[in-house]
C-alpha cells in the first residue's frame, strides 16, 4: 500500500480530507478544500491572487479551473472507489460557460459510469449559484493501476 493510499484510507474512515489534500502538492498550490455533507462532497477553491489569469476582469486562470476540476474528479473517485493506486487520467474535456471571477469557486462531481477498467466522471463548477455553472467537464480515468499499453 502506498503512503498516499494509507492517507486515503484514514481520510475515508475519519471523514476529514484535509490531510489527504495536504499530501498532494498541486492541491496545496491551488488551495483546494474538501467539504463533506453526508455522502455528498463539495470541493472549493477559495479566491487567491496567484490563481488569476486575465488581470483585467480579473478572472481565475482557465487552466486553474480545469486543474481544480480534474483534481476534484481524482479525489472524488478515490473516495467512491478506494483502490491500491491513484486513478490515472485518460482524457479531460471542459466547456467554459462563464468567466470565473476573482472569488470562491465550487465543484461537485458525478460518477456517470464505473466499468471494470474505466470510470467516467462529470464535473460541475460554479461560483455565485449552482444554477449558473462557470464550467462543465467530463473525464475518463483508468482505475487501479490499469496502464495504457505502450507501443513503440
Amino acid at each position: 500500500m502506498s503512503t498516499l493510499q494509507h492517507v486515503i484510507t484514514e481520510a475515508l474512515e475519519s471523514g476529514d480530507y484535509s490531510d489527504l489534500i495536504n499530501r498532494i502538492p498541486y492541491a496545496r498550490t491551488l488551495g483546494v478544500e474538501c467539504h463533506r455533507f453526508g455522502d455528498d462532497v463539495i470541493f472549493s477553491l477559495p479566491a487567491r491572487e496567484s490563481n488569476l489569469g486575465n488581470p483585467i476582469l480579473p478572472a481565475v486562470h482557465g487552466g486553474v479551473i480545469g486543474g481544480f476540476m480534474e483534481l476534484s474528479a481524482v479525489l472524488y473517485l478515490m473516495m467512491a472507489q478506494p483502490g491500491p493506486e491513484l486513478p490515472r487520467i485518460v482524457d479531460f474535456s471542459i466547456d467554459y460557460l462563464r468567466a470565473g471571477l476573482h472569488k470562491d469557486t465550487f465543484v461537485a462531481c458525478e460518477l456517470t459510469r464505473q466499468g471494470n477498467r474505466v470510470a467516467n466522471v462529470i464535473v460541475h463548477a460554479w461560483q455565485s449559484s449552482r444554477q449558473k455553472p462557470i464550467a462543465l467537464a467530463r473525464a475518463h480515468f483508468l482505475m487501479n493501476g490499469q496502464r495504457p499499453v505502450e507501443s513503440k
Binding site: 482557465g62 487552466g63 486553474v64 480534474e70 491513484l86 487520467i89
Partner: peptide, 26 residues
C-alpha cells in the same frame, strides 16, 4: 514540487499540463 499530483511517484498533476496547454493555445 508545487505541481506534483502524486507524492509517491513525483509525477506532475494533469491539471498543471492543462494550465500549460490552455495558456499555450490562448
Amino acid at each position: 514540487e508545487a505541481i506534483v499530483g502524486n507524492p509517491d511517484t513525483g509525477v506532475i498533476h494533469g491539471g498543471a499540463i492543462t494550465t500549460l496547454m490552455d495558456t499555450a493555445c490562448g
